[in-house]
Simulated assay, not measured.
Amino acid sequence: MTYLPDRITKVEGRSQDPHEGDLDVPTWPVEPGRYRLVAARACPWANRSIIVRTLLGLEDVISMGLTGPTHDERSWTFDLDPGGVDPVLGYERLQQAYFARDPDYPRGITVPAMVDVPTKAVVTNDFPWITHDLFFEWRDHHRPDAPGLWPDACREEMEEVMQRIFTEVNNGVYRCGFAGSQEAYDAAYDRLWTALDWLEERLTDRRYLMGDAITEADVRLFTTLARFDPVYHGHFKCNRNKLSEMPVLWAYARDLFQTPGFGETVDFEQIKRHYYVVHEDINPSGIVPKGPDLADWHTPHGRERV
């Protein structure tokens, strides 16, 4: 997948992240009220941006539009809104924002997307940079007690952890689900569980991935864990065991779920409807399973003792 690489930055052409500096991509100015984050609660990549926007207290600075949980080959649609139209952009389909940017836009219509409200055109859909820049570029507008999601003290290690999570876990479940052969599936399955066992061990003696505070790494892992039992375990055949059968990861996931900014962004019914309806090649019947029982996400986790 190729993404629109534009960035929204405080200073034109330059990142406020001390690890970056000058940028070689088009930049747009930080301007409260100018942009609309279009996301879907069903999508793990979009769920990241919803969580980070909430954690940083940017709800009154960057508006948000939510699509429905399903889409066709053309686009995500705003069927959750009255009349099926986004009230700010006036669009029925996210595709319209992409075509406002490029009438011949040739790539996938993805969420999350940052849309310039005055022109109603997509600015960027490059999801890892969207959450990165919400932290570094919009700092003047964060709530006073916003978490330090990118701590400099452990930045190098955090980048390594996030890279492994991205390749082996975030993408790993998809590698299992869309494997085209038994050999490919077996290899993907082994890679995924090697990574999950590593995470189970890593989190045994630390509350969060980088220590005693929530970081971007936790956000990136959480959105996959939240979907594991309702979707990936069965639908993607990641079925060595359920998340709820891994004591450390399950407690860690519940800890995050019960943290303000995380659980309220998760809609399990939308998640299940998205995967089981959209992936017709995997689930041609379109039947959405009633289970599993997800009430235990609210049970005590005991992670404050770690």
Rank of each mutant, 00 (worst) to 15 (best):
L94C: 15
R254N: 13
F99A: 13
E269Y: 00
F99M: 13
F268H: 14
M210L: 12
P147M: 04
M64Y: 01
L199Q: 09
L89F: 09
V219L: 05
D212M: 04
M158A: 13
R41C: 05
G33Q: 06
Y189A: 02
T2R: 14
F99P: 01
V61A: 04
Q163V: 05
V30Y: 13
T119R: 06
R34Q: 06
N241R: 15
T215F: 03
G180E: 15
L66R: 01
T224N: 07
R305C: 00
I50W: 03
K10W: 07
N171H: 12
E304M: 13
G263M: 00
A146S: 09
L196C: 08
G302S: 07
T77M: 07
Y174L: 11
L249I: 11
R36S: 02
T2D: 11
H233N: 06
G84V: 13
R93I: 05
T27F: 11
R207H: 06
D102L: 14
R175I: 06
G234W: 05
N283D: 11
I51M: 12
G68S: 03
L66G: 04
A153Y: 06
Y232D: 01
I282A: 10
R7F: 03
T265F: 02
Y35R: 00
V173D: 06
F268C: 05
D133A: 11
